[in-house]
Amino acid sequence: MLIADGWYSLATYFRTGGPVMVPLLLVSLTMWLLIAERALVLRRLSVHTFSGPAALKCIHEKQLPESQDGGAVGVLILCFLDRCSGDPNLDRNILDELVLSLNRSLTKYLPLIGVLAAIAPLLGLLGTVTGMMSTFDVMSLFGTGDAKGMAGGISEALVTTQTGLIVAIPGLYMKNFLERRAQALRRQLTVTGFYLRRHLQEAPC
Rank of each mutant, 00 (worst) to 15 (best):
N93H: 08
I119E: 00
S105C: 01
L98W: 04
A117I: 01
L100Y: 09
L90E: 11
N93I: 06
A120F: 00
S85L: 15
N89Y: 06
L95K: 03
G114D: 15
I94R: 04
L90Y: 05
L106C: 05
R83L: 14
G86Y: 11
A118L: 12
D87H: 09
L95V: 10
D82I: 01
L102R: 14
R104Q: 12
L90D: 03
A117E: 08
N93F: 08
A117K: 01
L110S: 09
G86A: 05
A120I: 08
G86H: 09
R92C: 06
I94T: 07
A118T: 11
A117F: 06
L90M: 14
R104A: 14
N89E: 13
R83Y: 05
L106T: 09
P88D: 00
V115T: 15
I94E: 07
L106Y: 05
S105D: 15
S101W: 03
P121W: 05
P121G: 03
D82L: 11
L112E: 08
R104W: 11
L112R: 08
V99Y: 00
L98Y: 05
G86N: 09
L106W: 07
L100H: 11
S101T: 14
K108M: 09
L90H: 03
N103T: 15
I119V: 15
V115D: 02
Y109R: 11
D82Q: 15
S85D: 00
L98S: 04
D91S: 08
I113M: 13
L90R: 13
P88K: 11
D96F: 04
V99T: 12
S101F: 08
D96M: 02
E97C: 07
E97A: 15
G86T: 06
L95G: 10
P111G: 14
I113E: 06
V115P: 01
G114V: 03
E97L: 08
S105H: 13
D87M: 05
V99E: 15
D96G: 06
P111K: 04
D87Q: 13
P121V: 00
R92Q: 15
K108W: 03
I94W: 02
V99I: 04
A118K: 09
R92W: 01
A117C: 06
L110P: 15
L100F: 10
N93K: 12
G114S: 12
R104N: 12
P88W: 12
L106F: 13
I113P: 09
A118F: 01
I113T: 02
N89C: 07
L112Q: 06
Y109A: 11
G114M: 10
L98C: 03
D91E: 07
L95T: 01
L90Q: 10
N89K: 13
V99H: 03
L90N: 06
L116N: 14
L90G: 01
I119H: 10
D91W: 06
S85N: 07
